[in-house]
Every structure is written in structure tokens, then in C-alpha cells.
């Protein structure tokens, strides 16, 4: 460093400082204003969320009773329940997730861990992303052609579950792949350097860290399954046979809660006086199911992460020890 440079750096340019300080005052104001803007956005979010919960529950809670949750629906007389609809909703949720999870996570593992980076992998990734934004009703039409017409499965819980599995596959792959790719390379290298095979490395070093992200994928997918209507109307139907309520037979027709709401609110059931109340009650139940699933999953993820990473709140070296 020559002495000129040293001289420059060792001194404050007073004019420059003055200019900065003037600009700093403005920057401080902008800083405060932006804090306000972000807080307002967050506040708006909280208001919307609590508003949705409040309005849906206020409309629907009066309808909810043990009888409402357990008896069959009626399209002729008031006082019908939604028991079979809850059953079908949970059945399709479980069946659809059971189909989409292994395929989705498997494909995500392949794309992130096995596939050689290059144009083909990129093309697959791009198509997956594109597929994720195809409207669900298009998948409904596709499902109707393939599962109802070609495979002859009829309007059934199985047709609906398969259709929803396909619908959710791209989303599942995208989120799961992101979660897996976010795992630090160092973990993979540590496992491989200890002589771990590729699969052992994935199973023991990569997936545990990616698990919270994969569970997020499951929860989002589950939410979409529970809330979907159009593809189910086209593949599962809108009725539940009175002699197949609470049936495990995947070839029965079915009607999920979301579809039930659609039928009551949009299609209309002439002569059923309490159709609106039943619909509102169904919406509240739907909301509660989603909330319960989310809270449950959050708790489960937490526990799982703690178990995989070792006990939570590990004491600092030499810190307080558990008795």
C-alpha cells in the first residue's frame, strides 16, 4: 500500500461524511416506514386467517353435533348428518396419499440424488413444474377417461384417489426434491467417506434432514386432496349408496365433504330446508379437520426431528445436565 492510499483511508472525507449523514436521515425514515409496511402486511394476514376461521366456524358450529357428525345425510328430510362424507373424505385422503407419497418421494430422490444434471433432468424438472399448474378439472377429465372408461373402474373412491394422486404428484415431487436438495452436500460426503452405499447414505444421512420438508409436501398435498371438488365429481361421483356407508370397498361411489358442500350450495337440493345449514356445518368440519391435521403434523414433525437430531435443548458443553 503506498502512502497516498494509506493517507486516504486514514482520514475521513468530511464532505462525503456530511453527504452520507444527510442521506442516512432519509434512509432511517424509509427504514421505519418499511418496518410499518411489513408489519401491516403481516397484520393483514392474521386478520384474514382469523376472519376465515371466525366466519366459517360462526356459520357452521351451530350445525355441528355428535348426531350431525355420525348420521347419514339426507336429501329429502332435514336433520341429515355428514358421517359417511367424513368417512369418504378420510378414505380418499389416506388412499391417495398412500399412492402419491412413495411415487412422489421416489421420483424426487431420483431427480436429486441419482439423475445426472443436464438437459434431460432439467426438462423433467420443468415439465413437473408445468404439470403442477394444470387446472385440476383437466386431471378430472383425464381420470374419467383412463379410470372410468378405459380401466372400467366406474365412479369410485379408487378412481378418485388415483386421479388426485396424479394431480398431486408434480407438487409432491417439486417440494420433496427441494427439501432433499437443500440437505448440505457435507452430510452426503461424510456418509460416503465412512463407506456408506448410495442408498444407505440417502436413507441415513439425507432423508432424515429432508423429512420436515417432505412432511410439508404431504400436508400441502393432503390439504388439496381434502379440498378438491371438480376431479372428484368426475371420478368418484356425488352420492353415497345407503347400503355402502362406511364401506372399505374402494369400488364404491362416494362423496367427500367438499363435494357435499358443492352439491348443497351450488347444485341445490329442492325441498331440503336445512341444506344451507348442513353445508355451513360441513365447511366448519372441513376446516377443523385441516386444522387438526396441520397441528398434528407439526407436532409429529417436531418430535421426529428431535429424535433424529438427538435430544432437544442439548446442554452446552458442561452446561446444565438432565437429572
Amino acid at each position: 500500500m503506498n502512502s497516498d492510499t494509506r493517507e486516504i483511508l486514514a482520514t475521513k472525507d468530511v464532505a462525503w461524511e456530511r453527504r452520507i449523514m444527510a442521506a442516512r436521515r432519509r434512509a432511517t425514515l424509509i427504514d421505519r416506514a418499511m418496518t410499518g409496511v411489513m408489519s401491516l402486511a403481516a397484520l393483514f394476514l392474521v386478520i384474514v386467517l382469523s376472519g376465515v376461521i371466525f366466519i366459517i366456524l360462526r356459520a357452521g358450529l351451530p350445525a355441528i353435533s355428535w348426531t350431525f357428525l355420525t348420521t347419514a345425510s339426507s336429501i329429502t328430510d332435514p336433520g341429515g348428518g355428514i358421517g359417511p362424507q367424513i368417512w369418504v373424505t378420510m378414505y380418499i385422503l389416506v388412499l391417495s396419499l398412500a399412492i402419491v407419497t412413495p411415487i412422489g418421494v421416489g421420483a424426487a430422490i431420483y431427480l436429486s440424488e441419482y439423475a445426472r444434471p443436464g438437459p434431460i433432468t432439467n426438462a423433467i424438472r420443468f415439465s413437473t413444474e408445468a404439470l403442477a399448474s394444470v387446472p385440476s378439472v383437466v386431471f378430472g377429465v383425464f381420470g374419467a377417461i383412463v379410470f372410468l372408461t378405459i380401466m372400467n373402474l366406474g365412479f369410485s373412491v379408487l378412481s378418485g384417489s388415483l386421479t388426485l394422486a396424479l394431480l398431486n404428484l408434480p407438487l409432491m415431487v417439486r417440494i420433496a426434491e427441494d427439501a432433499i436438495r437443500a440437505v448440505p452436500t457435507a452430510y452426503r460426503e461424510a456418509s460416503l467417506a465412512l463407506g456408506g452405499s448410495r442408498w444407505e447414505t440417502i436413507r441415513k444421512a439425507v432423508l432424515p434432514s429432508a423429512l420436515p420438508g417432505i412432511i410439508t409436501a404431504l400436508v400441502l398435498t393432503g390439504g388439496r386432496i381434502i379440498g378438491e371438488t371438480a376431479p372428484l365429481i368426475l371420478t368418484t361421483g356425488t352420492t353415497i349408496s345407503p347400503n355402502a356407508q362406511y364401506s372399505l370397498n374402494p369400488l364404491q361411489t362416494g362423496e367427500t365433504l367438499a363435494v357435499h358442500i358443492w352439491v348443497l350450495k351450488i347444485v341445490g337440493v329442492p325441498g331440503l330446508q336445512d341444506a344451507q345449514l348442513v353445508a355451513d356445518g360441513s365447511a366448519a368440519v372441513l376446516l377443523l379437520i385441516v386444522l387438526i391435521i396441520n397441528v398434528g403434523m407439526a407436532y409429529f414433525t417436531n418430535r421426529l426431528t428431535q429424535r433424529l437430531r438427538g435430544a432437544s435443548g442439548a446442554p452446552r458443553a458442561g452446561g446444565s445436565k438432565k437429572g
Binding site: 486514514a10 482520514t11 475521513k12 472525507d13 468530511v14 464532505a15
Partner: peptide, 9 residues
């Protein structure tokens, strides 16, 4: 005041 002042503090 000079155009510049020492900065190290």
C-alpha cells in the same frame, strides 16, 4: 475545520 479528520478511534 480541515477537509479531513483522522478516523481511527
Amino acid at each position: 475545520m480541515d477537509a479531513s479528520t483522522p478516523s481511527a478511534t
